[in-house]
Design a binder for these strands. Sequence first.
DNA 1: TTCCTGACGCTCG
DNA 2: GCGAGCGCCAGGA
Length: 103
Amino acid sequence: MPGIGKGRIMDRLRREGLTQFQQNVLVKVMEIPKGETRSYKQVAVMAGYPNAYRAVGTAMKKNPMAPVIPCHRVIKSSGEPGEYSGRGGRTEKVRMLKKERAL
DNA sequence: TTCCTGACGCTCG
DNA sequence: GCGAGCGCCAGGA
């Protein structure tokens, strides 16, 4: 269940018109192991922009491939799920999170 | 080019 | 322990 190659993803992101920063962030999020969660700050650090934790959220919104890029695994540092522009909103986000954690 | 907004984080009271 | 305010970077209008 390789799904899609990473290079394929980056190419798609680029074609979507996302910037280098956006691509970097999304790729890092994509590498978050199933059942694990990372804070926006963590993602920002991994992407190479330790202080751009705010822009990370903006990048998430632009996520063109919901299932491929597990943006629902990115939560706030406080432990709260935060917002979610995907289908179902925060509710679905939490649901998916619980399901993955159980696996 | 400039100003405003945003799926946030951290510090102070 | 909780709430409010300020600071941060990148994008979009």
